[in-house]
Design a binder for these strands. Structure first.
Length: 463
RNA sequence: GUCCCGUUCGUCUAGCCAGGCCUAGGACACUGGGUUUUCAUCCCAGCAACAGGGGUUCGAAUCCCCUACGGGACGCCA
């Protein structure tokens, strides 16, 4: 059996689009599944938008997602160079060959590929001009995902521009031949191009690879129509990097966007995905990106992280948000993180969720204050409870419960009246980590202090 | 305009190729309940789909045809 060689051939634009990432991912998965080779080839023939920064974004995104390539930039390989900008000689040779065997001709300084068949002229509604067309034999191929596809190429097309630069169709096919690519896995937007590519493969005397066209990722209908483009909210991998999504969850989610293992597994380790991944599991219809599900997965992976790793991710986030200092105590940090984790799905929310553990200067949610103040004056309640706590000798939750009981009896209230209030005083809101654990970690003294602070604060009328 | 591809719950999808096991399964979201002082975790329950029409067949989500809708391509962009 011949070696499986697949490639991801992006054009560095300065963005790493979610659709490109998914294409890269599926190529990578297939290569790993088949024990094949994953080639990264940079289609940088468009010199204007091609900058080192654009390449960096791309490679960084690939690495972040864990998509390691076997041949390509920075590591080289036997079929290099892997930048199209460095392969001009190879393209020139291919053009010479086509020119020599009569499948190409020069016109207006450019080189055109000749489609064989009877020629006629026709007004083209789309091009708004009369053009020369060809009655050609249809190109037929078996798409690994969609089955039999048939399409005619009815017009000659340029393969070298008047400025001497080779055109995408040409370089793409030449490189796939030279790099001995066995399977071309790419987006459905290339489906219509495939007939042209097939013409080129044949004219160059090469056996075409197997094609597999992936369904497109569509934008949220609320945003607009059509395939997701780089301008759409949530369309770039960088966005999820900056929002501190775990790469694992983004990758897992992307795997499921257009592929599934045919059983009920969804959150699954990458090794299992690699093992199960194959063309029959790939969807034909386009999919819509659903951030809610990715968030859910992120929460799942977050909860599975070893606490040291979790802290390693969290520390810079909290430092940047001004919640902790660079030298914050690791032990205390880990305790806080563990307390926050059960209900946290996104690291980007961690700062607001945990601020009160590190400072007394946390915002008080006015809605929460209004809610707490519905039955009784918060300041009054806080004062009563603080006094009871100060009189208490036992520490921790036990002491808190005793104080609660005492305050309730003394002032003729239900113990429950103090509970939401305590959370509000201690955290600034009405939701968050388990209150008992907060009390244990912060200590009764601190709880009392925060209650007193609330008791002495001026009461604001809620609007 | 021409050509190509697609269409199962709001979303991602299983089932379709090898028609009966489908009163269509799972997951996210949503709703309700439980746990909880609170809560974004956890547990339970619920909601909700075969685009429409015609055929073939004893029987169709599954096969065939048409229509509608969605998407893509048609560039000296990639």
């Amino acid at each position: 059996m011949s070696q499986v060689r697949v490639r991801f051939a992006p054009s560095p634009t300065g963005f790493f689009h979610i659709g490109s990432a998914r294409t890269a991912l599926f190529n990578w998965l297939y290569a790993r599944h088949c024990n094949g080779t994953f080639v990264l080839r940079i289609e940088d023939t468009d010199h204007e938008r091609n900058t080192p920064e654009a390449l960096r974004v791309l490679l960084e995104g690939m690495r972040w997602l864990g998509l390691d390539w076997d041949e390509g930039p920075e590591i080289g390989g036997p079929k290099g160079p892997y930048f199209q900008s460095e392969r001009s000689e190879i393209y020139r040779a291919a053009v010479e060959k086509l020119l020599a065997n009569g499948r190409a001709y020069e016109k207006d300084g450019a080189v055109f590929f000749r489609i064989e068949g009877e020629r006629y002229r026709e007004y083209d509604e789309y091009l708004k001009a009369e053009v020369e067309k060809v009655r050609a034999e249809p190109m037929v191929f078996e798409d690994a995902i969609r089955g039999r596809i048939e399409r005619v190429v009815d017009r000659d097309f340029p393969i070298v521009r008047a400025n001497g630069e080779p055109v995408f169709h040409l370089v793409n096919v030449v490189d796939d031949i030279e790099m001995e690519i066995s399977h071309v896995i790419r987006g459905e937007d290339h489906l219509a191009n495939t007939a042209r590519h097939l013409e080129l493969f044949h004219a160059l005397g090469a056996t075409p690879p197997i094609f597999a066209h992936l369904p497109l990722i569509l934008k949220d209908p609320a945003v607009g129509k059509g395939k997701m483009s780089k301008r759409d909210q949530g369309a770039l991998i960088e966005e999820y990097q900056t929002r501190h999504f775990l790469a694992e969850s983004v990758r897992n989610f992307l795997c499921l966007l257009g592929w599934n293992p045919k059983d009920d597994r969804e959150v699954m380790p990458i090794g299992e995905i690699i093992e199960s991944f194959d063309f029959p599991g790939i969807q034909k219809g386009a999919a819509r990106f659903d951030e809610a599900k990715m968030r859910f997965m992120n929460g799942h992976y977050l909860r599975e992280l070893p606490v040291e790793t979790y802290a390693w991710f969290a520390r810079p986030i909290l430092t940047e948000a001004g919640v902790i200092e660079e030298d914050a105590d690791e032990d205390y940090l880990q305790k806080v993180l563990l307390l926050c984790r059960p209900k946290l799905d996104l690291l980007e929310n961690l700062a607001d969720y945990s601020r009160f553990f590190f400072t007394r200067d946390y915002p008080l949610d006015e809605k929460a204050r209004a809610k707490v103040g519905k039955k009784a004056d918060p300041s009054e309640l806080a004062g009563e409870l603080a006094a009871a706590i100060d009189a208490e000798t036992e520490a921790g939750v036990a002491g808190f419960e005793a104080a609660l009981e005492k305050a309730a009896n003394e002032h003729g209230r239900k113990a429950g009246a103090y509970r939401p209030l305590t959370r509000f005083a201690v955290t600034g809101g009405l939701s968050g980590p388990d209150m008992g654990e907060i009390i244990e970690l912060l200590g009764l003294e601190e709880i009392s202090l925060r209650l007193k602070k609330l008791a002495s604060a001026p009461v604001e009328e809620s609007k």
